[in-house]
Amino acid sequence: MKRILYIFGVIGVLALLQWGLTAVLLDGPVRQGPYYYQILVLAGINIILAVSLNLTNGIAGQFSIGHAGFFAVGAYVAASVSYYGGSAIRAAVSFIPPMGQDAVVLLIALAAAALATALAGLIVGIPSLRLRGDYLAIVTLGFGEIIRVLILNIDAVGGARGFSGIPKLSNFFWVYLMAVATVVTVWNLVRSTYGRAFLAIRENEIAAQAMGIDVTRHKVLAFVIGSMFAGMAGCLFGHYTMYLHTNSFTFVKSFEIIIMIAIGGLGSIEGAVLGAVLLTVLPEAFRGFDSYRMIIYSLALILIMIYRPQGILGQKSLFGKKRRKSATIDAGPTGAKSVAAETGVAGKQ
């Protein structure tokens, strides 16, 4: 019961924020508002990407460098659903108001993106995760490139022209709802038996196997869940920018996400969130340096790595100790608590 209340609480807070942000930033008095809004939304999408990659790379310890590939699959599948099937879906639910219809189309697109990317993750993961070592890195890098070239050759999604005419269905509310959902899911997963297994695999695969953990199954599970969230991020991305082009999904994007989690602290969820925000905001903040922008930006990243090689937060969790206790002692409403922590209304029961 409490959990449901918290879920509605989060939705309510985000909806309120969406309304407030629209009033202040988009239609309101802040003259650079739309620019800040755009950065805010892109940061949210990067949070989903970083936290989901963190599950594979940081928590389960498998080095995937093809996250942009899954991001692309989700973006294009979802965009196709709403572009080609949008009117049919709207007709089917014509009894609800247009805003509700938008939500239905977006949710169906989200589901399609999640399914498609989970499937893609399964196909890539099963053969490559049976092996130990660098194979996943090589396979995922290849996968990312294959997906990109494949999209370039599919005319129905625009090919090299780019996919334009995607309806604008996503906004701050949807992006951050998804970001909260991603963080909560990963958070709870890490504190479940599956999460313990992921950590055990990361620390020592042979030891984990000796303890009776089905190593391949757990690795694939982490990988598929991570990919699925990347796909959903893709859906929100495409429906926000209204235009997709494969230049946004090169391996450079994959590395950007890896940098986010490395800067934040590999394995730390808050670190991934922090890294995602930092890597979205910094290049924009450095625009004042004109042509030296990317040099300063790279320099900043190098400096962080010199002073904090383990990432800004390391493997520490900001609320770590309290969490861990609650997870082990009362196995009950950890989900609800995490939601509370995210929205800043931490329960003082």
């Binding site: 930092l278 905001v281 910094l282 903040a285 625009r287 800004i312």
Partner: peptide, 17 residues
């Protein structure tokens, strides 16, 4: 220790803005 370089960057960014 981690926050110092970050703060420095935020400052820099603010200046550039």
């Amino acid at each position: 220790t981690g926050i110092i370089p970050v703060l420095a960057m935020v400052l820099l960014a603010g200046l550039s803005a």
